[in-house]
Each structure stands twice: as structure tokens, then as C-alpha cells.
Design a protein around this nucleic acid. Structure first.
Lengths: 209, 209
DNA sequence: TATCATATTTAAACATGTTTAATAAAAAAA
DNA sequence: TTTTTTTATTAAACATGTTTAAATATGATA
């Protein structure tokens, strides 16, 4: 790596460290690009040159941590547990993580969750990983005979994500909601998705296929 | 109403009309508060005095239309149809509506969906209305014997909303996704929620209750 | 009516994310 | 080595949402 390249990477790292510190301490809305630049010892323009925008910086600074947390949750997954328990294991890890700085992650998710695929590769990639991972788990359950064979595993995985994400949204919107309450709600919703809500009779009538 | 009050309301209306026009035409990110003020024939400060912030103005300007659209969808609801068909009727109406100006509604929802309850009364109220409405429909289905009696109707309604909203998010994030594709996906997810994914045997073992 | 208080509007200033144009330093070319 | 080109950095300017303080208009009060 050329001299020029190394100093560039050093500058980038200085900014990233400063941003992480200030975002965590003061929240992304109460720290300015100038604050971050000062903390990093560079000019505000340099921050923009290295990371396109404040939102992009927020994204780079935080999504890495989120990925680590996901990896940790996956690594500690109880493999023998039932599908619902596994989903709840991941959800517990993620909700607790976001709970450590709710305002920070509220702003992060708000600012990035509606970006298009190209603008937010992190989210797209994480979601895709999740779908493969959880979809695979559901396929396994089919083989074990716990999930019906005609079920579309990817749709099921996507549905679980929808339930997980909606509860997360409510959790971040409502400061009075605890991790425990969020988990309780998710468990109820996910359990319904596992067991369905229709009567057997109605299913046999084939009204919903 | 006093003279002072009427002129105030007139000013407010001028701003609101100007905002609606420019938001629709140029998109909320490409029209400034100064643009809106000029179009309305008032000062930029006046816009802030009447509507706290640009986001709040966006909210007031657009949520009313959304409410009208919901009301229209509810009014044209086929009452004899099955639960899934009714959900799809609402979803079709809403997705088509958002499709009329995707970028506009993407920004609106992004900027408001993560606000706390107090900051965004529209969303909270609309969601609550929906839960009561759809929860009531599910209770009816219980009486008809189409939905199992032990099912928590409110949780079921909330779950359907989660599925609806997640598909909407994907729809707004991904410009290549059509209304038809979104509806297709939602139908698959909602149908799974109706019928469940577990085998009967596993349910009898009571692993998920 | 004259005066005071209150509410509405606004010009000007401010705060902050971002862009631009210039500078300095490194790499490449001569 | 000297010159040229490319690249990293930044000071200054800009764009735009928002605040502040002043001015203006309205209603109440004497």
C-alpha cells in the first residue's frame, strides 16, 4: 500500500473513531459534522470526502457493530431448540442490543431502512443472510416433520422477519416498551404464524389456498 | 370566529395548498421551505410558525389524503368476502395509492414512521383504527367458526399489519417492484399466517403454546 | 377614542450539512 | 532531477431548516 493510501486510511479511521464516540455519547442528532471533524482532528470537508454524508457515516459507523451482534447471536444459538425458541434467541439478542442506546438506533434505522438497495448495502446483505439462514432452518424442520412440506420456507422466513421488525419499530417508537414486552409480543405473533389462526374445517374448504 | 382567527386560518390554508402542490410536483426533498413560502405568498418564518417543521408540514399535508384513501377502501370493502380477500382489498387500495407517487410517500413514511406516539398522532391513530377494525373482523370470523376461538384477534390483526407494512417497505425501497408483485407477496405471507406452517402432529405435541 | 395587551407576521440572523475551488503533497513521466 | 499529473486535504462559500427579535395588526380596556 502506497504512502498516500495508508495516510488516507488513517484519516478515515480517525474520523470513524470520532464518529462512533460522539454518536454514542451525544446521539447523532446532537453532534454535528464539525464536532466529529474537530474530535478527529480533520476538516469538516474531509469527513464528507471520506464518507459521502452524515447518514452514510452513521451507517458505516454502526452497522458493523450490528453485524457483530448478529454473528454473536447466531454463534450462541441453541441448535436443538424449536423454531420459535431460535427466533426468540435472535430477537432477544437484537432487542437487547438496540436497548443499550435506543435513541441512537432509532435514528439509524429511521434514516437507513427506507434507502434503496444500492444506497444501503448493509441492510440488504443482512436481510439476505438472515433469509438464507432462517429459511434453511425451516427447510430442516420440514425434513424433521415439524413443518408441513408444502410451506414456502423463504416466505415463512420473510414473515418472521416482518413480525420481528414491526415489533422493533414499536419498541423504538415507544420508550415505555421494555425488551421483555417486545419479546412477549413477538412470541405471540410468531406463535400464531406457526400455528395459524383458521379452523381445520375452513382450511379443508380450501378458502385460502 | 374572530377576524384574527380567520386570517390565520387562511394563511395556514395557503401554506398547506402550496406545500401539497410542491411536494407532489417536485418531491419533498427538492422543494425548500422558501419555495413553499414563496408559492404561498408568505414568509418562510410563517411556515414554521404554522407548522413547527418541514417534516410536520409534510405529515399534515399528506396524512389527510391517506386517511381519505383508507376510508374509501373501507367503504368499498366486499363484506361477504373471506378474511384474506378483505385484507388484500385494503392492501391493493393502499399500495396503488402509494404507487401514484412512490418517492413522495417513501420520504413521508421514512420521516414519520419512527416518530414517537406524541410526535405523530396520525400514524398512531390510523394504526389503532385499523387494529380495532380488523380485530373486529377477526372476532366475527371466530363466531362464524372460520377462526379458532382461542386466537387473540388483536395479535392477529397486528400480525397482518406487520406483514402489510414490511411488504410496503420493500415496495418503496425497490423501484422495480410493482403493485402486483407486492400484492402477490403479501398474499403468500398472509395466507401462511392464516394456515400456519407447522404439522398437526407437532402442534399436538404442544411445542408452541 | 386612546391606550394597552396580545396575537400574527416577517426580516434578518443562525446552525449545520454539503459543495467548490484552491493548496499541498505524493506519484508518475520526462 | 525536473516537470507533470493525480490525489488528499481544507478554507471558504453555499443551501436550507429553524430561531430570534422586531414590527404590524387586532382585539380588549379605560
Amino acid at each position: 500500500m502506497s504512502r498516500r493510501e495508508t495516510t488516507k486510511q488513517e484519516t478515515r479511521q480517525l474520523i470513524l473513531d470520532a464518529a462512533r464516540k460522539l454518536f454514542q455519547e451525544k446521539g447523532p442528532e446532537r453532534c454535528t459534522m464539525r464536532d466529529i471533524a474537530r474530535e478527529a482532528g480533520v476538516s469538516p470537508a474531509s469527513v464528507v470526502v471520506h464518507f459521502k454524508s452524515k447518514t452514510a457515516l452513521l451507517e458505516v459507523a454502526l452497522y458493523e457493530d450490528i453485524e457483530h451482534n448478529i454473528a454473536r447471536a447466531v454463534a450462541t444459538m441453541p441448535l436443538e431448540a424449536a423454531l420459535l425458541a431460535r427466533l426468540m434467541h435472535i430477537a432477544q439478542a437484537m432487542y437487547s442490543f438496540y436497548d443499550s442506546n435506543r435513541e441512537l438506533y432509532r435514528v439509524l434505522i429511521r434514516d437507513t431502512a427506507f434507502e434503496s438497495e444500492g444506497e444501503n448495502p448493509y441492510l440488504t446483505r443482512q436481510l439476505e443472510h438472515y433469509l438464507i439462514f432462517f429459511g434453511g432452518m425451516i427447510e430442516e424442520e420440514k425434513k424433521r416433520g415439524a413443518v408441513r412440506p408444502e410451506v414456502d420456507a423463504r416466505i415463512a422466513a420473510a414473515s418472521f422477519f416482518s413480525l420481528y421488525f414491526s415489533v422493533l419499530m414499536e419498541f423504538l417508537r415507544n420508550p415505555n416498551m421494555t425488551v421483555g414486552m417486545a419479546l412477549e409480543r413477538l412470541a405471540l405473533c410468531a406463535n400464531q404464524h406457526l400455528t395459524g389462526i383458521m379452523t381445520q374445517k375452513e382450511k379443508n374448504d380450501g378458502r385460502c389456498t
